[in-house]
Design a protein around this nucleic acid. Structure first.
Lengths: 234, 234
DNA sequence: AATTCCATTTTGTATAGACTTTAAATTTTT
DNA sequence: AAAAATTTAAAGTCTATACAAAATGGAATT
């Protein structure tokens, strides 16, 4: 048999299954018919049903277990997917002109809090880089970053006067794991100066820790200018 | 042929491809061999290669276009996936005891800013619900929510004195689209009182707009207590 | 009554092959 | 030279089938 216009596609099945869940025909926690039965219902192969259900499970609507079958999740665990763009791309996408400025670089032993956060040995040292990202002449983001020298030895020769450490790292070091945190922090005097806001103002902040195969590579705090909103649709 | 222990699995292919990208063997922007060629290399069918590459594209490492082929993305668009839990689950997962308190409910014409945000007609009215979520006796989240009555007529008979509007909505109305925004806001006097912080303190805030097939259902602002961190790993 | 073992069910993944759709590249026409 | 039509290469999807792996539930054993 072949794929003609009247063939049931895995997308049709996804749609139908979603509709049945939404309409209440398939209640939360209830078990779906198995793949073979659905294949008969939709007149297609089990392969096609499998793909549809697999994707719906991946999207957080269903839970699947071998032998136990497929069931509807009671609270659909829908996941918001944030694509974190490079600052430059983000600014240019808004029609701004990206401008970068290095504030300071310093090589030093890792401070205690950082050592604890990244599970560093007491003797490991880090490069501390602070820099600003502007949209035109408006401050957009202040970046406070630490790079683990043992994990990225080349960093000692890197020149961050013209390129941001993030751009450099993305080009230079691959990573395997990331921890990303969003929080609201309070602008201290220094930060207020950088971002051109009053001291004490709320600042949307992202923290990012990056590892390569278990090795900590870098820790970054990114402070966004007033009014920043991190948005996604799903 | 059949799936024996020496069979190449799509997971092996994913690993190998990722390794080649990380090692620089396959440079950013460069074109991968086509599926047929890779199938020969890995001694498997094109189907298997297809699944591996499809998933890697979905995860943001590759870009695929028919006829044009598959290429390595220069800045891997890795996506952070946040699963937004129900407040109750979040509190209980931390070992706290969930407690809920209704602050106010009111039915009113939609304020202008809300009408604009949700594309409401001028005559549409909304139910405004304000409530608190506690972990034990500690304030955890203040929720400020508007529900579009035309989209959820049953809401006028709902009783939010014991159950939060979010729990009720999740049980009652399906949704198809969500816009989620994170930002940092400043505690005004009222909010400071609810969350037990000083006026002016930064407050991590999430805004969520929910639609059902294009119809706006609800707009919610969720203000989190001091120190809240929204974290994910990927 | 508890534990271990085993059969069975259901999803997971692979093969081989074919047709479909998209869009880049080429050729033809204007 | 530009625009339109055609070719074609690559990914996209489906069928049909087979074996694999996990986990459940019951049977056998302790």
């Amino acid at each position: 048999m072949t794929q003609t216009s009247d063939t049931t596609s895995y997308k049709d099945i996804k749609r139908t299954v979603l509709r049945r869940i939404r309409s209440g025909e398939w209640q939360p926690e209830s078990l779906l018919p198995n793949e073979q039965e659905l294949a008969v219902e939709f007149s297609c192969t089990r392969t096609t049903v499998n793909r549809a259900l697999r994707e719906l499970a991946d999207e957080g609507f269903l839970e699947r277990r071998r032998k136990a079958g497929t069931r509807v999740l009671s609270a659909p665990q829908r996941q918001a997917r944030f694509t974190i763009p490079l600052v430059r791309d983000e600014i240019e996408a808004m029609g701004g002109t990206y401008r970068y400025a290095l504030v300071s670089t310093e090589t030093q032993p890792a401070p205690d809090w950082l050592g604890a956060r990244l599970a560093l040995r007491p003797d490991q040292s880090v490069m501390h880089v602070r820099c600003m990202h502007f949209s035109g002449n408006t401050p957009f983001q202040f970046e406070d970053r630490w790079i683990v020298i043992d994990s990225v030895p080349q960093v000692v020769q890197a020149d961050f006067s013209g390129t941001g450490p993030n751009d450099w790292l993305v080009q230079t070091v691959p990573f395997t794991n990331v921890e990303l945190t969003f929080l609201a922090s309070r602008a201290d005097a220094a930060l207020a100066g950088f971002l051109d806001v009053s001291e004490g103002e709320p600042v949307f902040t992202a923290e990012r820790i990056t590892w390569l195969e278990g090795q900590p590579v870098t820790f970054a705090k990114m402070y966004f200018a007033a009014g920043y909103r991190m948005t996604t649709e799903f």
